[in-house]
Amino acid sequence: MPAAIEISGLTKRYGVGDAAVDALKGVDMIVQPGEVVGLIGPSGSGKSTLLKCLGAVIEPSAGRMALAGEAIYDNGWQVADLRALRRDRIGFVFQAPYLIPFLDVTDNVALLPMLAGVSNASARERARAMLTALDVGHRARAPVAQLSGGEQQRVAIARALVNQPPIILADEPTAPLDSERALAVVRILNEMAQRFATAIIVVTHDEKIIPTFRRIYHIRDGRTYEEAGEGRAA
């Protein structure tokens, strides 16, 4: 089975000439399906740039990047339809849930399959199943504004998972939550990773959840350093 994420020698340069800044200087990373890894680093270390490259929202300057064995960037060549790539193969969980405020819980989740061309009825059925799996099925018809922070984050995870992408990028998903809820979110991410064989990269500064990762990538000055984590139960 190919790795869910395989990156080698990835670089990203902003600007040109004397003003050029190398945000990534040859990043290497491998994440297997069903694995949850942490990505940790100080501000300005290149975490967000790496996340944006992985999320196919900015183009790397050089290197190679493959998702589930399929190259999406290879030294200047890039997959043509990045929008479809993001929709079908990458899930996003943000620091804040960023749910669409004018859609109810079900439609926030169902929107992704709908964008992929799935009928409304089927998309809503998938959404309800995913919400039930994340233990927020009872709030399926509620407006998102009526949900607690933890519930909103679970809905955001359901949205990231509903198209069953091979990878999920989680950008500080526990930052606004207290310890209990933060660990609950990590527990859910681990369960979902196992259940759907999804690779999840969690960018975090959160000391509470760092010990839960089995593998951690430290990023400093645009380079990654791999480290074995404690893998403590969340």
């Binding site: 929008r83 993001r86 929709r87 960023y98 669409i100 405020p101 992704l112 949205r159």
Partner: peptide, 16 residues
């Protein structure tokens, strides 16, 4: 703007 950015990130077409 934030909702539009999220919509674009999750694959909404420009025409949508």
């Amino acid at each position: 703007v934030r909702e539009i950015a999220v919509l674009k990130l999750i694959g909404a077409r420009n025409r949508t």
